[in-house]
Design a protein around this nucleic acid. Structure first.
Lengths: 101, 101
DNA sequence: TTCATAACTTACTTTTCGTAACTTACTATA
DNA sequence: TATAGTAAGTTACGAAAAGTAAGTTATGAA
């Protein structure tokens, strides 16, 4: 890994968002809070990775995890304000995709 | 890989943009045409991957490659209209990064 | 006692990355 | 003639990340 003059914040943003599945996970959560299985069945992602990604996103502050101790347990994931404020970027990508792909 | 009801265009867009380094490569090229070595030294990416990514982006129509047969040879990469029109998305990510990271 | 469910977790294979050395083509210099 | 320098890659290989499938935990219902 080299030294660069690149803005570290942009670099980190691209690292977060540019990680596989993250864009689509955020896209799903922009519709509202969702359960683990809901996200898993909306996307072609495996449970292993979904679990890993949600943990990262929670740690970075984009996603919140809420556990409901029902039987069986229910766990809901939702966007924080930080996560929600990526809506503009995700929307822009969606619009672009409809025009160019 | 599972079946999904996910929009294939959004899915493909996220695949393209969400691939490692692609966001930052596009960001660099939004400043204007750049040579291989210029991009390589602006980003912490190796020649191997940069070469691979530029080929993909060219194949997908986001980037154009122009060879100038000087000595030594000069190769410039620039965004196509398709590539340029991702500016909105990249800008949104940059703005988000300045606010939240 | 067995089954079912949600949300993970583990074990294992395949793919992608990161690093560094090497290649090609041509010119300038000793 | 031999050597060195430069841009733009390419190759080889070990390390890290992703994909797949089976297993785990907790609880209540049949």
């Amino acid at each position: 890994m080299k030294e660069t003059a690149l803005c570290p914040r942009l670099s980190k943003a691209m690292d977060l968002i540019g990680k596989r599945w993250v864009g689509l996970i955020l896209y799903e959560l922009l519709e509202g809070p969702k359960r683990f299985n809901e996200i898993e069945s909306s996307l072609p992602i495996s449970g292993r990775l979904l679990s890993e990604r949600l943990k990262e996103l929670e740690k970075e502050g984009l996603v919140e995890r809420q556990v409901y101790t029902e039987v069986p347990v229910r766990v809901e994931y939702s966007l924080t304000e930080m996560g929600l404020s990526l809506k503009g970027a995700i929307d822009a990508i969606e619009i672009w995709s409809k025009r160019w792909l």
